[in-house]
């Protein structure tokens, strides 16, 4: 295969960000990090990502706002965007879906599960694993 798939991990928690990055790098993805929605928009504007994973509750620009802003950008109209939610709270999920999220990952996540979900929307090997 060609170059590794690039993923942008957005979370205001450094720990969470690093854990996502670590896990996905282990699965062969290239991962960039951003600490809130605004920073994510700047990074996403400067280079193309194959998928975005974002927390919902963040300062400056929250996850919903980020998803909406990305969807408004033609470059990210069809890009898989996963939201990280702590709660199994359906209203948050609904709001995220309404904003245009592709899917979700429930925190705290199991690394295997995270990779599985990312593979689901943005496989990095032809035909999946």
């Amino acid at each position: 295969m060609g170059l590794a798939k690039k993923i942008l991990a957005v979370d205001d928690s450094k720990t969470m960000r690093e854990m996502v990055a670590f896990t996905l790098k282990g699965a062969g993805y290239e991962v960039s990090e951003a600490e809130d929605g605004q920073a994510a928009l700047a990074v996403a504007g400067a280079q193309r990502f194959d998928a975005v994973i974002t927390d919902l509750n963040m300062p400056n620009l929250n996850g919903y706002g980020l998803i909406r802003a990305l969807r408004a950008n033609p470059a990210y109209r069809f890009t898989p965007i996963l939201m990280l939610t702590t709660e199994g709270d359906p209203s948050k999920k609904e709001e995220g879906k309404a904003a245009g999220a592709t899917g979700w990952i429930v925190k705290p996540f199991d690394p295997v599960k995270l990779i599985e979900v990312v593979q689901k929307v943005c496989p990095n090997k032809a035909g999946g694993v």
Binding site: T102, K120, V121, V129
Partner: peptide, 15 residues
């Protein structure tokens, strides 16, 4: 519009 892709879903089913 949600970034989902049917072909990936079909591939996953095949698994």
């Amino acid at each position: 519009m949600t970034g989902n892709e049917p072909i990936l879903i079909l591939r996953e089913l095949a698994r």
